[in-house]
Nucleic acid binder design. Structure first.
Lengths: 327, 327
DNA sequence: TTGAAAGCGCTAACAA
DNA sequence: TTGTTAGCGCTTTCAA
């Protein structure tokens, strides 16, 4: 259909103009008569001409790519989060005429990240998960590569965009408290992840001095089962789950123990997702918008790349979904 | 640490050579004395010099990127598959000095795909999911863009790499038959996806003329529940599930109906995954290697890009995991 | 075997 | 307001 390889030169010649005039018309930079500009714009629109980003990038020392770096290991739950996030990232990137280069890293293996940066394939990087003592962060800092973190990190001086987990968890917790729960159990996951700490903090702030029982590092069904048993032995009237996956396992366990929600005890999750969609009663949970998170993060990275000042820490909102499980 | 921007010119000057000599040393193309070549190689190794792929690409009309195109909608299960696949793709791409540009498409919205191709950001594309009457395939064919499909498509003349679903399902089915099942129910998912048809075909070939009941398009819990009820009413002694997600829902339903596996009836899944990891007894299932699939697919794409002839259809192997659920 | 020079498609001074 | 020209960093003829 349309010419495989039209160049800016072709356009210029066809219009009897010079390359630079065409270039200026497209970019909008520099002085240009509105008339000429429109003529060019119309022409390229009609012919579906697109400047070659490689050439553009070469001359501007830009790649027009951002790196999207996520863990390569298998966490079913977070995959869904990343996918939603990615939608936001791709959208925001496209708006700035950027594309998204994806790579995965492991806890100790950041070779994928090194590849795309050392090979000059990206202008900046978005880190999808961070750990305490994160190798990737160290590396990016040292190299002075622009990057933004989705989620939180304890590392100083890192630009991050996150949901306000502490505030959200605090709010849900204090609502539960107002509803009259007396002995509350918190079941949390991997303490190696920063978010676990934030959620616990919010929980504790919300509970103030009420009686609680806390069980962490419940990273598989067995651990969760044991935590639930302990909570029941403790005489809990409400189990607060750190995330959707844990909540799913908790619900399963309660069913096995033939305990009714919310009659025998209440259940709430600090993270809502599709995983929680099918329960009856529905689960009280905190709802975030991962796509929005991805979008904001990418916009922030774009700002950094374009040399703008950005805030060190941006917090996004949340919703508290009060459902039957805490009635 | 290392120089932010060493160019081939810097290397040439430092070594008292010309750009072209350095270029040849690195690429290995053209005549070069082994001695000079080694000198160059040593130097760039030591200084960690990497040729700028944008410049390289510009002069060779290549981007050194492949596009990884997956659905943007929310299929929890397939996400895991894609992630594993992606690992293989990234690995194979890196070996050829390529990186992976990711984008998502919807059933009717292939704008993301158009973006990366029209903008000349990729040399070829890998399609992660295909539908019948796939818009993306149409588009890529029409534009003559090199692409490979992971999985199968009915479209003619499309290069595809897939697990041999038909053979695998046929084999598992006939093993079940040999084990003496008499009335078998097949519960399948979205008939809009090609793989559903392949699995059904394998099932039917394996069953030959035995009595079966087939229920398709079970895309949510309600549908699956009804299918299970019908199967039980039919007097089934074995339920065959098209994939892990359906199997999960089937197991849940059976629990609700207080039917024991394998005592009351047997259960098998045509797709194994982590989702099936926690059942007791364990589930008989077909196991594939998504990472290997991704790798092969990307290698095939690289071959096409480099102008090599490739087979139209490549089939990967499978494993039959016989577990307690069909004992 | 090596070097000089042109060119890939674009941007950005600098001139006109 | 527009055009000319010199790069961006690399590959690749063509000469030497």
């Amino acid at each position: 259909m349309d010419n495989e390889k039209t160049t800016i030169d072709d356009v210029a010649k066809a219009l009897g103009l010079s390359k630079s005039t065409v270039s200026r018309s497209i970019s909008g930079k520099g002085r240009i008569s509105a008339e000429t500009r429109q003529k060019v714009l119309d022409y390229i629109e009609e012919r579906n001409y697109r400047p070659n980003p490689l050439a553009k990038g070469l001359s501007e020392s830009k790649t027009y790519n951002v790196g999207w770096v996520i863990p390569g290991d298998d966490h079913l739950t977070s995959l869904y989060f990343y996918q939603r996030c990615l939608q936001g990232v791709i959208g925001a990137a496209a708006k700035a005429d950027y594309d998204v280069l994806i790579t995965t890293i492991g806890k100790d293996d950041i070779s994928g990240l090194k590849r795309i940066t050392e090979n000059h394939k990206v202008d900046g990087v978005i880190l999808g998960r961070t750990l305490r003592k994160d190798k990737a962060i160290r590396y990016l800092k040292e190299k002075g590569i622009p990057f933004v973190v989705v989620g939180s990190t304890e590392e100083k001086g890192v630009i991050q965009v996150d949901n306000d987990h502490v505030a959200a968890c605090r709010e849900l917790t204090s609502i539960l408290k107002m509803k009259g729960v007396k002995r509350v159990a918190f079941i949390g996951g991997d303490t190696g992840q920063v978010v676990t700490g934030s959620r616990l903090q919010g929980f504790q702030e919300g509970m103030e001095d009420a009686r609680t029982q806390i069980c962490l590092d419940c990273v598989n069904k067995d651990r969760v089962d044991r935590a639930v048993e302990e909570a029941v032995a403790f005489g809990t009237d409400c189990i607060v789950c750190e995330d959707d996956r844990i909540c799913q396992m908790v619900m399963e366990k309660l069913k096995e123990m033939e305990l009714e929600v919310p009659t025998d005890l209440k259940v709430a999750s600090f993270y809502d997702s599709k995983l929680l969609g099918n329960y009856k009663p529905q689960i009280t949970a905190l709802k975030y918008d991962p796509t929005e998170l991805g979008k904001k993060t990418c916009e922030t990275l774009m700002a950094i790349i374009n040399g703008k000042k950005v805030e060190n820490r941006q917090m996004l909102g949340y919703e508290v979904l009060l459902k039957g499980s805490t009635q």
